[in-house]
């Protein structure tokens, strides 16, 4: 196995280990109660489907790297996963997505009303997990983590609103800068920045400057999202677990779409604008294939890959700045190795 392959395997092993811990913690908050058929069994569906567990892994590893114990961060990791699953349920409704983690989305299986209600329940359960921080960490630190949680949720919802607004308004006058600003809010804050900051808060007992983790978390999260966008177009659906080209069917303004909007004119540009103005059910497989072909022709895929590579390299510098005072440890190594893994992953 190559060195890069070994690193990827080691990162995936660690992700699996942290994921198992976080899932155990999360399942402790899932009620075994009635009404099971219409609520609690639905609530348990997405958490039971696994996932990459990037968020809890970042939170738990960061806690230990900054000097804490993994057990101290389990309620926060569980809360993160619960809220993440709530976001997924609601996002799938908003995006009319069909597949989630290789299976039908919750609303596709049970209908929109029950799915939305189950998503609401997941939000409430996340609050219950956070409340346990008071007993574990004391009121002051638990309050700080609660503030962080609120900030993260707010940023994420703002980002989601912006993206939905672009689609509703058929926004076409966009630049890569707009895309980065969008994913700072929509993806990075809750996928990377927040888990790292909460881990540092717990591990250091609120004694470190968290601004440097915003920078590292953003570069790491942006590399993750750009790779996710590429996988959505080019990945193996069975491995990736989401609908192939689902982002295009949903009219998302990915980096490739924005690049294409800026690179085309004349009939290609008009065709792209017409496509983006359609409702999801009106977008055909032929339309989507034509857009992908335009992306290939205009170098949008290569642009996104190069763009992501540059961001990942900057993430390495940002990591060294953020973790300069953190002693060497397996957790520190893991966090650093995640940068390369973000671009190498195929699922």
């Amino acid at each position: 196995m190559s060195e890069a392959g070994a690193t990827t395997a080691a990162v995936e092993d660690e992700l699996a280990r942290y994921g198992a811990m976080a899932r155990d913690a999360m399942h402790a908050y899932l009620p075994e109660a009635e009404p099971r058929r219409h609520l609690w069994s639905l609530v348990a569906e997405y958490p039971g489907r696994g996932g990459k567990a990037i968020r809890p892994a970042l939170c738990l590893a960061s806690t230990v790297a900054f000097g804490g114990e993994v057990e101290e961060a389990l309620p926060s990791a569980a809360a993160l996963e619960l809220l993440h699953n709530a976001f997924l349920v609601h996002d799938d409704v908003e995006d009319a997505s069909l597949l989630r983690r290789g299976q039908p989305t919750l609303h596709a299986e049970h209908g929109v009303p029950l799915a939305v209600n189950a998503g609401d329940a997941l939000v409430i359960l996340a609050g219950a997990a956070l409340r346990d921080n008071r007993r574990l960490l004391g009121t002051r630190l638990a309050t700080r983590i609660g503030d962080e949680f609120e900030l993260m949720a707010r940023r994420t919802i703002e980002g989601q609103a912006r993206e939905l607004g672009w689609r509703r308004d058929v926004a076409c006058d966009l630049e890569p800068d707009d895309y980065l600003d969008l994913i700072m809010h929509k993806t990075c804050w809750y996928t990377t920045i927040h888990p790292l900051r909460v881990g540092a808060l717990i591990g250091s007992f609120d004694r470190v400057d968290l601004d440097s983790l915003v920078r590292f978390g953003f570069y790491l999260g942006a590399a993750f999202q750009i790779q996710d966008d590429l996988l959505n177009l080019l990945g193996d659906e069975a491995k990736y677990g989401k609908e192939s080209c689902g982002d295009l069917y949903e009219g998302k303004r990915t980096l490739m779409v924005i690049h294409l909007l800026n690179e085309t004119n004349g009939k290609d540009r008009r065709a792209l604008e017409r496509f983006l103005a359609l409702e999801r059910p009106q977008r055909t497989a032929a339309d989507v294939a034509a857009i992908v072909e335009l992306m290939r022709h205009h170098g949008s895929l290569d642009f996104a890959q190069a763009f992501g590579q540059g961001i990942a390299e900057a993430a390495t510098d940002a990591f060294e700045a953020a973790f300069a005072e953190v002693p060497d440890s397996p957790e520190r190594h893991f966090l650093r190795d995640l940068i390369a893994w973000m671009l190498e992953r195929d699922a």
Partner: peptide, 10 residues
């Protein structure tokens, strides 16, 4: 150019 643009924007 793609990387420079990305880093400046980031």
């Amino acid at each position: 150019n793609a990387q420079r643009r990305g880093l400046e924007a980031a």
